[in-house]
Simulated assay, not measured.
Amino acid sequence: MATSAGDKAEQAGDSASLEVFARGGLIAYGVVHLLIGWLALQIAWGTSASKSADPSGALRTVADHPFGQVLLWLVAVGLVALALWQASEAIWGYHNRDGAKRVRKQVTSTAKAVIYAALGFSAASVALSSGSSSSQSQQETTSGVLAWPAGHVIVVVTGLIIIGVGVAGVSKGVKKSFSEEIDTSSMPRAARKGVARLGQVGYIAKGVALVLVGGLLSYATLTFDPQEAPGLDGALQTILAQPFGRFLLTAVALGFLAFGLFAMLQSRYRRM
């Protein structure tokens, strides 16, 4: 009976309908990054300060447009489906991998499932007009965790994990290891090179931003000032405050735009 239930659950994880929704989720994931990149460009060149260049700011940009609520619910459904697909991969996938490589893939899929689910929840919250900015939510969460026993250790470790994820993203971009996840054999050679370049630029830029987020979070915790623990928007503002910050932030923004386009292309060419 247990085996039968497990087989049915695995079949559900591999179902065609879930794949369709998950591919739609990749489009939604790409749109969120395109909007973050666009908002970051506006911040870099001083054309807008009304929205945060973080996921919640991107989602509020969607909400401000006609049919925005409907689009947000579509984004939420797609991202949740993407989370379910990654969860099924973590539980039942990678049977052809051995040892540490299989465990690494499962951990990565689990982390992605959590990220996609959180973004889906954020989209639903904004659709219901109950979402707060990612930076504000992070500060509230950080303050709460710091009150726990060993709370500072937990937050610093979390910051180090975020740094690790960022470094892994940069490495993935430099090595172009993301090419294992997509099948572009049907593309002309020039198009394949263009997709690879988008992936490289996108992963590296996003990785750099995550390293900065994790570093700022850990630093704020060690200096006992949780209100100085910014999210992605705060990290981008920190880049802007540096010498030549406008140009550095522009480069990061273009990287997010590249990652968004790459994610949308994955909806067509991702191996599932």
Rank of each mutant, 00 (worst) to 15 (best):
S129A: 11
S129K: 07
S129D: 14
S130K: 07
S130R: 10
S130L: 06
G131S: 14
G131C: 04
S132D: 13
S132V: 14
S132G: 14
S133Q: 06
S135N: 09
S135C: 04
Q136H: 11
Q136R: 08
Q136W: 03
Q138W: 12
Q138L: 14
Q139C: 05
Q139S: 08
Q139L: 03
E140H: 08
T141H: 00
T141V: 12
T142N: 02
T142Q: 01
T142M: 01
T142S: 02
S143K: 08
S143T: 15
G144V: 00
G144W: 05
V145S: 06
V145G: 11
V145P: 12
L146S: 10
L146T: 11
W148D: 06
W148I: 04
P149E: 00
P149M: 00
P149D: 01
A150Y: 13
A150E: 02
A150L: 12
G151N: 01
G151T: 03
H152D: 11
V153S: 08
V153M: 05
V153Y: 05
I154K: 01
I154S: 01
I154V: 14
I154C: 00
V155Y: 05
V155M: 00
V156R: 10
V156I: 15
V156C: 09
V157R: 07
V157Q: 04
V157D: 03
V157C: 12
T158A: 15
T158I: 12
T158N: 04
G159F: 00
G159C: 04
G159E: 06
G159D: 00
G159A: 03
L160I: 06
L160G: 06
L160T: 04
L160F: 01
I161D: 00
I161E: 01
I161M: 04
I161T: 08
I162E: 03
I162L: 09
G164C: 06
G164M: 07
V165F: 15
V165K: 05
V165P: 04
G166N: 03
V167Y: 08
V167F: 10
A168D: 09
V170W: 09
V170C: 14
S171A: 15
S171R: 14
K172D: 09
K172E: 11
K172S: 14
K172A: 11
K172Y: 00
G173D: 05
V174I: 15
V174T: 11
K175V: 01
K175I: 01
K175L: 03
K176T: 09
K176E: 15
S177K: 11
F178T: 10
S179Y: 02
S179R: 13
S179Q: 13
E180R: 15
E180V: 14
E180G: 05
E181A: 10
E181T: 11
E181Q: 11
E181S: 12
I182R: 11
I182E: 14
I182L: 11
D183R: 11
T184N: 07
S185D: 12
S185W: 03
M187A: 12
M187W: 15
P188W: 06
P188S: 07
P188N: 10
R189D: 12
R189S: 13
A190I: 14
A191L: 08
A191D: 13
K193R: 13
K193L: 06
K193C: 02
G194T: 04
G194I: 01
G194P: 07
G194M: 07
